[in-house]
Nucleic acid binder design. Sequence first.
DNA 1: TTGAAAGCGCTACCAT
DNA 2: ATGGTAGCGCTTTCAA
Lengths: 343, 343
Amino acid sequence: MTQQTNRRGKVTRQDVAREAGTSVAVVSYVVNDGPRPVAPATKQRVLDAIERIGYRPNGIASALARGTTRTFGFVVPNISNPFVASIAHQVEREVFDQDCVLLLGDSADDAAREAALVRNLLDRQVDGLLYMAVTQDVQLDRATASGTPVVVVTHANSDGLTASVRIDERAAADAAMTHLIDVHGQRELAMVTGPESMMNSALRLGGARDAATRAGLTIPDEWTVHAPYTREAGSAAAAVLFGDGGAHPTAVLTGNQEQAIGLVSALHRRGLSVPEDVAVFCLNGTDDSEFLVPALSTVTQPIAEMAREALRILSRPDHYAAEPIVFDFELVPRESCGCGGSA
Amino acid sequence: MTQQTNRRGKVTRQDVAREAGTSVAVVSYVVNDGPRPVAPATKQRVLDAIERIGYRPNGIASALARGTTRTFGFVVPNISNPFVASIAHQVEREVFDQDCVLLLGDSADDAAREAALVRNLLDRQVDGLLYMAVTQDVQLDRATASGTPVVVVTHANSDGLTASVRIDERAAADAAMTHLIDVHGQRELAMVTGPESMMNSALRLGGARDAATRAGLTIPDEWTVHAPYTREAGSAAAAVLFGDGGAHPTAVLTGNQEQAIGLVSALHRRGLSVPEDVAVFCLNGTDDSEFLVPALSTVTQPIAEMAREALRILSRPDHYAAEPIVFDFELVPRESCGCGGSA
DNA sequence: TTGAAAGCGCTACCAT
DNA sequence: ATGGTAGCGCTTTCAA
């Protein structure tokens, strides 16, 4: 494989044209299969030349000329959160299926970083931006101003202008709590939800309270803890809920799987068993839930479909729905809430 | 904020120059803080103009002109694997700290996809490529041919030409198995390692056998299972190792955390408890390990340092080390091997 | 069917 | 200190 070099040491379309004895335009036509037809013989000459000198098209140059990058950006709060990772995995699948590539921006739960990431991605001319928020509400005006389509994943943006895919978090929390109450007869209820600053936290807590109220019960304020969506916070919540030797809840709903893992781990260390002593249910579980000990009861989101829909929206921004697209969640009761022994 | 538009409906540097009454060159100088100085007054005029008309530099155009994209590519086998995700998280951190952005390619454990991803990323002119293999050996010649620096993360490429950061997997397996034998007096040993097709599998198994041999023990072939690095496979391995009611191992080392999770989950369903009935140790654990029930004993890799080093190599490809850079692993015994009760 | 040439938006050299 | 301008590699219109 002969390597020709231009100034920058790269093989360019120029080189191919020279080698094949044609014009640069023709090379473009064969590489892109259009927009003009090329005689079979010529085409073969070009293909051979490409092979011979090892030409690869420069994606940056074509992006500039074409005005499209075939790249999507995805800003996530923290890729090491399994729920986030599984969404990213699905999104990447969809993106790849469209012959595009995903620019992942991990904001490490930092709002400033997140803003920088959004700006950066936009500057890179992504064809669309997926967004999973750290902060309650985002500065997405920059994006909309730039004309780049955006879809908020998993949350709804209160501006009512940005497309979004999500489930009804309030209903999900309600359903989980209702299960705990109706199926397992739980009456000493607690909830570990997210930080007060996050919109979801209130929604989830609201749903849980709805369920309790409907059953003539309440979730006492002392048994309502706001905490980050981490395992550490889940463990810490256990200290609050089960700290003194006194009365403690017998059923806990957590805002996400990580909190539940931390909680269960802490209960284990305290010698309390799940679900015998305490029933645990969590929102937004991942495939992990099934393999935890005990298997974790959870509410799941249809992330594959959500990812697909999100990409669909980005591809036809004209079909923009300011109304959030709401998907159905699924209640998956397992061992940790008292359902099924060794299923 | 007035929006000027050119043909494509974007605000360009032209518009800024016109608005500020200067040349386009000057606009470049102020945006990039160089390479020529600009008078404070002029600079302010430009800045104002930028603000006024809402200008944002086009990263694609500047990448083309500059010949550098400030973008790194990272090809991973599956982002929903927590070990992979935590590495990606660290890599993203490092990349961001260099004011760059990460193009994540998730090959979904598919070799063809992986090849496509590598090609795609290279075509996009990434300034460097990080690579975590699905397949044992990769077609990285394309990359090296293109002159793009590459570093293989977590594995070593046998071509001996590509830089890599990793730990000594063989020694890691040896250390874990030795712990099981020496500290806990285990003698009925089993190993769940990766698929035969993967280089690591043999290394890990080799290390485990070294340890056994040194103690005058063996890991019987019936208790050596090759399986994918998934929870499902870990559970399936349990069926093999503990299937009939007969003799079973009392200590199992797994190739990764996912396998261990699947294994422990299956043991739990079978009514066997960890570590009382079976001690479990795994390689390459993540932060998750600590919160599992029981807390999982593991060998960890210093992923933050490895990520940093990988990026360092990409930034100075001249310092290329064909020799893999080997990091120290850390043995973290917890509950699952029999260490510490409720630590 | 093929080729020439005008951009795409920005950088940076060379003048002034 | 500022401005003109020649590229960067590719796409695509228009003419041949």
